[in-house]
Design a protein around this nucleic acid. Structure first.
Length: 799
RNA sequence: GCCCAGGUGGUGGAAUUGGUAGACACGUUGGACUUAAAAUCCAAUGGCCAUAAACGGUCGUGGGGGUUCAAGUCCCCCUCUGGGUACCA
């Protein structure tokens, strides 16, 4: 009766494959459940044990929902465009397509070896032209809606990778991938107007069943702030400077102004004697990496322009400075500085000896800026007011005097949507010689990637596509004009922005998805993935989804109803798994030694799904032992000879049904497994159980360890697949208890336990407890003040 | 700096609304089986004190205070760890 997991697992994987056990179609007679994993990037190193954590969780929920009568959509695919593949292609000269196909093969074999209940007929790959045709199609929708535009912008140029990166891909002045230095350089880029959706992306977060911290991160990223736009006249010029401020109430305390070095007015207003200094400063700022510019600890720098502005509230002249602590990309790129009540301005004023005028009472402005609420002083018509009232009054005053208006600003910026790379979706864009642009029509899609010899970027900043004349230069059949194709490609986020929609209807050649499939399957009921995508992927996908919603192409405002982030799995040494540390665990190794069911079970048993937790091979052995014991016990007919089940076993069984069901619903897989262990231990002690008991237990186990469950199910003489069986229902009858062992404590300290009938009245319990000889001892002649009796919980005697 | 999460035995972790802290598992120790080992099975296993043994006592959920009959759980202060973020006006 050996547990031959290797044979068992291969046998059932083959069975599921051949019988298409998990094939799924739209079926209006059943409620649907759409479960989604963040699909993997098929890297060259294959799966690591972090991947199956989320996948196992979704698989358990999927199999459970199936047994609960749902029509479950649980697909898998590949986020297969991406930089590492292209870099590998550059190094080896092998076509990224070939590399990708190979990597996918490895990933697929590995995933299949884990027994996930995917409908493999729905497999998609973002680098497949059948898929990216529709990514391009969505781009045309964005373009035609006016949400895509080209702009000459300061971009993050990485000389090493020869690519432009979005701000969010640059970490501390280095590229997120590879850690190369990034500098700023102006370049024409495709942009998506995600800012137009900022408010809705913010508001609709409220209705999502997402972890609060993720919602908070998105809120912070969008960074909505309400304030006022104030116009400052420039002395001896007829121009004005607009500033954005959330603290218009401190206007009387504005003692200078600051423009970002890139601000267009800087060169216009700088006086002759300051020109040299200012130009030098601008040059220096441009040469600085983001790392240097955003280093909070550094001393503030800046130069005086020689020009002055007029503070509109008191007509005082205040100097205008240039400093790189003001960012051109936020607000208007200019600020009014209130050093008494803003720490950054305070530091700057201190350094350059500029006046600091307090306009709110409180704090000690000799030491630091006072940023809290207080009563206004030195503020004319605001004197005596608190912050909120003063802001309102000032804003009304500004509007009345046509000196400003209310304004809302966002940290969120438009999305830089082009990459100078080969391995991405080409844009469906033609550029004519006269500089005009045409976005292709549906019937002209897809624009496929041409074959190239070399994958290196052109070096001028353009992608390798710029070198392929035959692809690049075309005569547009629709207009007859000569045209050049757009040589940029889309970023990796593009494909993953809508893959969940394609999963609803992956084989559709006519449309990206049918209305019927979309209406039936959407939204995604449960989305599990890593927290690293908390902001970008999830925000971009929500943005696209809202655009599609506005176009009537999808029926839900939000794509992902419930989101859960699985925690990282660390190496045995408690460090992040990495090749360099040599602590990477390959799932193949675990499958070979202990089997897929053990791997699945262990990943779930380690601890709460959301938590970061270290790997332990000993732990794998622990759950492996459990499976061996379960197999040896239940597969042996000698143990299933009981005719009528013991009440005690029935009780544990039904407790187990209840706990496993509740825990799966709550994604608490670790405690569900421990309950199944308790049950198995109980059965082994009992010696024999009924076949019915064994079958019920096997069904409970089946979402977790599906291969073993199928095997047992067959051994019991049933027809496969157990995946189609109904999930057991617990019966309250068997859970009833009539006696309870009450812990009795004196002044909150547990002293002894006493078995009492649950039917007893409080007075009877009290009498029983007090007459117990142990109680007499603990009372020690003293009189009890009162007795607290909590039904089925505890008895506490207060002495 | 700010925001978020967290700190429970030797280890991973349990503890549903405040109600028996340490479920389950790993590890360790002892025993059975074996020529022996592995595997398996059985038993013990938070610290300290006490005891021939049993019954026990006492401390204990990062630290300190508080609320409560009762606190891992609620409140206040401190501390440490992990993650995120970066001059956003």
């Amino acid at each position: 009766m050996e547990y031959k997991f290797g044979e068992i697992e291969k046998k059932w994987q083959k069975y599921w494959d051949e019988n298409k056990t998990f094939k799924v179609e739209v079926d209006h007679s059943k409620p649907k459940f759409f479960i989604l994993d963040m699909f993997p990037y098929p890297s060259g190193s294959g799966l690591h044990v972090g991947h199956p954590e989320g996948y196992t969780a979704t698989d358990i929920v999927g199999r459970f929902k199936l047994m609960k009568g749902y029509n479950v959509l649980h697909p898998m695919g590949w986020d297969s465009f991406g930089l590492p593949t292209e870099n590998y292609a550059i190094k080896t000269g092998i076509h990224p397509n070939i590399i990708t196909k190979k990597n996918i093969q490895v990933f697929k074999r590995q995933l299949k070896s884990l027994g996930f209940a995917y409908d493999w007929d729905r497999e998609i790959s973002t680098s497949d032209k059948k898929y990216y045709k529709w990514t391009q199609w969505i781009f045309t929708k964005l373009y035609n809606k006016g949400l895509a535009y080209e702009d000459e912008i300061q971009v993050n140029w990485c000389p090493e990778l020869k690519i432009v990166m979005a701000n969010e891909e640059v970490v501390n002045g280095k590229s997120e991938l590879g850690g190369y230095t990034v500098i700023r350089k102006p370049m024409k880029q495709w942009m998506l107007k995600i800012t137009e959706y900022a408010d809705r992306l913010l508001e609709d977060l409220d209705e999502l069943d997402w972890p609060d911290n993720i919602k908070e991160m998105q809120r912070n990223w969008i960074g909505k702030s309400e304030g006022a736009n104030v116009k400052f006249k420039i002395a001896d010029h007829n121009q004005t400077i607009d500033v954005f401020t959330t603290r218009s109430d401190t206007l009387f305390g504005a003692t200078y102004m600051v423009l970002a070095p890139e601000h267009e007015l800087v060169t216009k207003i700088t006086t002759a004697e300051n020109r040299k200094k200012v130009n030098e400063y601008i040059q220096k700022a441009a040469g600085k990496s983001d790392l240097e510019r955003t280093d909070l600890a550094k001393e503030k720098t800046g130069v005086f322009t020689g020009a002055c502005a007029i503070n509109p509230v008191n007509n005082k002249k205040i100097p205008i400075w240039v400093a790189d602590y003001v960012l051109i990309s936020y607000g208007s790129g200019a600020i009014m500085a209130v050093p008494a009540h803003d720490q950054r301005d305070w530091e700057f004023a201190r350094h350059f000896d500029l006046p600091v005028i307090p306009v709110l009472e409180g704090g000690d402005i000799e030491k630091e800026a006072f940023v809290e609420d207080g009563i206004h002083i030195n503020s004319g018509f605001l004197d005596g007011l608190g912050k909120e009232d003063a802001v309102n009054k000032m804003n009304s005053w500004l509007i009345e005097n046509k000196l400003g208006k209310k304004e809302i600003n966002y940290k969120l910026r438009d999305w830089v949507f082009s990459r100078q790379r080969y391995w991405g979706e080409p844009f469906p864009i033609l550029k004519y010689e006269d500089g005009t642009v045409r976005c292709l029509d549906d019937d002209e899609l897809p624009v496929t990637l041409p074959e190239v010899e070399k994958y290196e970027p052109s070096g001028t900043g353009e992608s390798p596509l710029a070198n392929i004349d035959s692809w690049l230069n075309v005569t547009d059949p629709k207009t007859g004009k000569k045209a050049r194709r757009e040589t940029n490609t889309m970023p990796q986020w593009a494909g993953s922005c809508w893959y969940y929609l394609r999963f609803c209807d992956p084989g559709n050649d006519e449309k990206a998805w049918s209305d019927e499939a979309e209406k039936y399957w959407m939204p995604v009921d449960l989305y599990i993935g890593g927290v690293e995508h908390a902001v970008l992927h999830l925000l971009y996908a929500r943005f696209w989804h809202k655009v599609l919603y506005d176009l009537g192409l999808v029926s839900t405002k939000e794509p992902f109803k419930k989101l859960v982030n699985q925690g990282l799995i660390l190496g045995e040494d408690g460090e992040k798994m990495s090749k360099s540390r040599g602590n990477v665990i390959n799932p193949d190794h675990v499958v070979n030694n202990y089997g897929a069911d053990s791997l699945r079970l262990y990943e779930m048993f380690m601890g709460p799904l959301e938590k970061v937790k270290p790997w332990s091979e000993k732990g794998v052995k622990g759950v492996f032992n459990f499976l061996v014991r379960a197999y040896k016990f239940f597969a042996n007919p000698d143990h299933l000879t009981k005719e009528t089940e013991d009440p005690e076993t029935l009780k544990v069984l039904h407790q187990t049904i209840r706990k496993v069901e509740n825990d799966i619903e709550g994604l608490r897989f670790n405690t569900a497994i421990s309950q199944m262990m308790i049950f198995t231990n109980h059965c082994m002690k009992a010696g024999t159980v009924t076949r019915n008991t064994a079958e019920i237990f096997t069904k409970l186990l089946s979402p977790f360890a599906p291969h073993l469950a199928e095997e047992l199910w067959q051994i019991f003489g049933n027809r496969p697949s157990i995946a189609y069986e109904e999930f057991p229902v617990y019966n309250e009858e068997f859970l009833k208890e009539d006696i309870f062992e009450y812990p009795v404590s004196f002044n909150g300290k547990l002293r002894f336990k006493i078995e009492l009938a649950l039917s007893l009245e409080k007075e009877e319990i009290e009498a029983a407890v007090l007459s117990d000889e142990r109680a007499v001892r603990w009372l020690d002649g003293k009189k009890q003040k009162k007795i607290i009796i909590v039904h089925k919980k505890i008895i506490n005697v207060v002495v």
